[in-house]
Amino acid sequence: MTTSQGACVQSPIDIAEFEAILLARKQDLLEILALRNANIKDLHASSLTDDSDVISAQIQGELDSLIIEKYTLELAEIEASLQKIIDNTYGICEMCDDTISKERLTIKPHARFCITCRELYEKNQPKS
C-alpha cells in the first residue's frame, strides 16, 4: 500500500488471524510427526529378510528422519512465534526491531526477520 507521496505504508496485521494460522500449522505438524515416528517404529519392529526390502526400509527410515528433523525445526519456530504473540512482540524483526510486513507474515507466519534482515542473515550463514 502506498500514500499519495509514494511512501510505503504497511497494513496492520491481525494477530488473531496469524495465531489461528500458526495453531493450525502446529496441529498439522504434530500429526505429521506422529505419523513419521510411527513409521520409523514400524520399520524397526519389522523383520525383513529380503535385501531389497531392507534397503527400501532403510531409505524410507532415512527419509522419515529427515522430514522429522525439518518439521521439528519448523514446530520450534511456530512455538516461538506463539510465545511472541503472548509477549506482544509478534511481527517484530529480531535483528532490526522493525515491523515484519504483513505480506511476509502471510507467506511465512513464523518469520523471525523482515525481508532485508533475512537476506543479511542468509549471506552471513556458513556455506555447506
Score class of each variant (00 low, 15 high):
19 E>A: 15
20 A>C: 11
23 L>V: 13
23 L>C: 13
24 A>S: 09
25 R>V: 10
26 K>W: 05
27 Q>W: 12
27 Q>A: 05
27 Q>N: 08
27 Q>F: 06
28 D>F: 04
29 L>V: 13
30 L>W: 12
30 L>S: 10
30 L>K: 09
31 E>N: 13
31 E>I: 12
33 L>G: 13
33 L>R: 07
34 A>D: 12
34 A>I: 10
35 L>H: 03
35 L>N: 07
36 R>Y: 08
37 N>G: 09
37 N>S: 08
37 N>M: 10
38 A>D: 11
39 N>K: 12
41 K>M: 03
43 L>A: 07
43 L>N: 04
44 H>I: 04
45 A>H: 06
47 S>V: 06
50 D>F: 01
50 D>V: 03
50 D>T: 04
51 D>V: 06
54 V>R: 00
54 V>Y: 00
55 I>A: 06
55 I>E: 08
55 I>P: 00
56 S>I: 00
56 S>E: 04
57 A>D: 03
57 A>R: 02
58 Q>S: 04
58 Q>P: 00
59 I>W: 01
59 I>G: 01
60 Q>P: 02
62 E>G: 02
63 L>D: 01
64 D>V: 00
64 D>Y: 12
65 S>Y: 03
66 L>C: 02
68 I>R: 12
68 I>F: 07
69 E>M: 08
69 E>F: 08
69 E>V: 04
69 E>N: 11
70 K>C: 02
71 Y>F: 10
71 Y>K: 08
72 T>A: 06
72 T>P: 09
73 L>G: 01
73 L>R: 13
74 E>W: 02
75 L>R: 11
77 E>C: 09
78 I>R: 12
78 I>A: 15
80 A>Q: 11
80 A>E: 14
82 L>V: 15
83 Q>K: 14
84 K>V: 06
85 I>L: 07
86 I>V: 14
86 I>Q: 13
86 I>N: 10
86 I>W: 12
87 D>F: 05
87 D>K: 05
88 N>T: 14
89 T>V: 15
89 T>G: 15
89 T>Y: 05
89 T>S: 15
89 T>I: 10
91 G>R: 01
91 G>S: 09
91 G>K: 01
92 I>C: 13
93 C>S: 15
93 C>V: 13
93 C>P: 14
